[in-house]
Amino acid sequence: MLVDSHCHLDFPDFAEDLDGIVTRAAAAGVGRLVTISTRVRRLPELLAIAERFDNVYCSVGTHPHNADEEDGIAAEELIALTSHPKVVALGEAGLDNFYDHGSKDAQERGFHAHIAAARATGLPLVIHTREADEQCGRILEQEMAQGRFQAVLHCYTGGRELAMKAIDLGLHISFTGIVTFKKSDALRALAAEVPADRIMVETDAPYLAPGKFRGKRNEPAYVVETAKVLAEARGVSFEEFSRQTTETFFKLFSKVPRPEVLA
């Protein structure tokens, strides 16, 4: 069994095919899906999807691209919204210096608020960080000194220094279909270094389809292809990699019910 720990089932790309998406994922052995929030104010839309499917869960949070739009949402509001049984994580929140969306100050305020909510609830924070390694690492160190929290750096494409700093802080690293691209040798080498109990796999669907499907709309079933490449890079069998990453997922996303048997 595999898990897609990060997809966006509420995006318009999936509107006409949601039942098929979830059915194909299950047929491919992907037993749990987490649809990740990009706007707190759209949580009802995510909950409608999560409540529709037994194996789908969601997060609540503000993507850094939307930081100005949702600037000022306090940790207390985030904490209150996690009371729903299907809300199993905070985020995605963080820092993005690649696109000119969301002012840096608003992004950083939102990042701190989400970390505070993660610390208070014990739920994992899904971190988006792009071209912000130094700033992200600084904030993570400062915040961890104020009290531990759980988090995963999702869709990781940053440098080795930030990855190792996150691991030293007790955090997790997750990889997408980018790791399957021909020019991703350095990223695969980094993925091979990540401890077995800190690595996860995701799609970030509908974006970043793995190499076999590149150019097409991504979907949770395709997480299998990314897992195959990561297993090869790490020198383990696909079955062992699936077992390791799924076990790590359930430890981190502890609010998601485990199946009786992890296939």
Rank of each mutant, 00 (worst) to 15 (best):
Q142F: 08
G61Q: 00
R138E: 13
A48W: 13
D10L: 05
H172P: 10
D185C: 03
F149Y: 07
A113I: 07
P85T: 15
A231S: 01
D68K: 00
F250A: 03
C7H: 00
G94C: 15
G110N: 09
E232F: 07
H65V: 08
R42C: 15
V261W: 10
S5G: 10
A191D: 00
L90R: 07
I36N: 05
D68Y: 02
S83V: 02
E141P: 09
K212H: 09
R24L: 06
L252C: 05
V30I: 14
L43S: 04
R217L: 00
V40L: 12
A196S: 14
D96Q: 08
A50K: 02
E141N: 10
H101M: 06
R24K: 14
A28R: 13
R160W: 05
V3F: 03
L47S: 07
A25I: 06
D100T: 10
I199R: 09
V40P: 03
V126K: 03
A15T: 11
R41H: 15
H172R: 12
A186K: 12
T38M: 12
V87Y: 11
A227C: 15
V30F: 14
N66D: 08
A80H: 09
H112V: 15
K216P: 07
C58N: 01
S237V: 00
S254I: 05
L125W: 00
Q150C: 05
R24M: 14
A192K: 01
R188W: 03
A120N: 12
F14Q: 01
D10N: 15
